[in-house]
Design a protein around this nucleic acid. Structure first.
Lengths: 192, 192
DNA sequence: GTGAAAAATTGCGTGCACGCAAGTTTGCGT
DNA sequence: ACGCAAACTTGCGTGCACGCAATTTTTCAC
């Protein structure tokens, strides 16, 4: 399905993402109205919400766009997954900084971690785990990644300032480490 | 802090929960307006939102109220946690049924699982785990419980795929089982 | 008790999310 | 090329979440 229709949809989706990000960078996320984004793209506000369920989602989508973690084979599962997640969250640019400025954006960005669950679950299942086990472990991995993100984004007492307690890759490795035993146990429970 | 002020706050909070639940049961969750709940309690709609951040939260709070998981000591950590979560989600009543009728309520209820994270983390830390490890594992437990809930609440998936769900306790045990290796590994990493 | 500080309630205004019922565009069979 | 059905867009209306500032209630020290 590479129809005109599909291409147009994708085009406006991307246009909305980019417009949202550009406006957020210029004016600060709080000062961007949905109406502006829509107008910048030449679309009605109502249509914006047909593409994105909230004001923040377009911005987050712009930062997350088109990226998917790929888990290498041939290494211990835990290591592969940890590396993949670290790679996935290796800063795609300094645009990421605006995330820290806005609570709603932070929440939305943290929720977006859910996007890695499906690929991770697939990778785990590919190692011979029961699909339901894979789903649970993937959810656990995502939860741990969320904890890492939360630590990274943790606010100080000072309004507007963020306390960065280590680099994000370090935090992710630290957060995922406790799950290693469960991930590496996958081989021992091939109850498929 | 058992001042008049505190007691009053708690009273209106409870009143709001109960009113919300009662109205939801009588008219269906979709047909309950925030205004009604507020009015039933004799409070302004604005005040409702000072107590609960959304329309659904009061209903969910009514079902979750005052319950906290307690993790027994003296048994393997994984077993204790699994039992505690199962007990926590053992249906206190059939009021739970309304949850299934409404997507927003389902989401809100699933999000409420987060409430077990703190107690679970405390229990894990009490076994000698590093607090950060405990936090991650608790998040993983909550994520697994969420998966179980999702499976339980998923009344209908794709037509043709059979609904394999059993009782909630069974689903929770099944979902938490894959995390056991990570939980039981806690002893081996007392990096306090 | 009395008055002032702290906390809670309230009304108001704004922007957002979304169901619904038109309108408009695109895809496709003939 | 035609025309119809499906998909997409749009305007409208409603209810909700929440910042803000004014008002009322509670607390506390004297």
């Amino acid at each position: 399905m590479d129809s005109l229709r599909e291409r147009k949809k994708q085009a406006t989706r991307v246009a909305l993402q980019e417009a949202a990000l550009r406006l957020a960078l210029r004016k600060g996320p709080e000062n961007v109205r949905v109406e502006e984004i829509a107008e910048a793209v030449g679309v009605s506000p109502r249509t914006y919400n047909n593409y994105f369920p909230s004001r923040e989602h377009a911005i987050v989508a712009a930062l997350t766009a088109a990226r998917a973690p790929d888990i290498p084979a041939g290494v211990p599962l835990a290591d592969g997954i940890i590396d993949a997640v670290v790679r996935f969250y290796t800063d795609p640019g300094e645009a990421m900084l605006i995330i820290t400025t806005n609570p709603a954006l932070r929440t939305c960005y943290a929720d977006a971690v859910t996007g890695i669950e499906e690929p991770v679950a697939a990778a785990i299942a590919a190692r011979g785990a029961d699909p339901r086990t894979a789903e649970v472990l993937a959810a656990a991995v995502a939860a741990a990644a969320r904890v890492a993100l939360r630590r990274w984004l943790q606010p100080t007492g000072v309004p507007g300032l963020m306390m960065v307690s280590g680099t994000l890759p370090e935090l992710i490795r630290a957060a995922l480490a406790p799950l290693s035993p469960a991930l590496d146990a996958v081989k021992t429970h091939p109850v498929a």
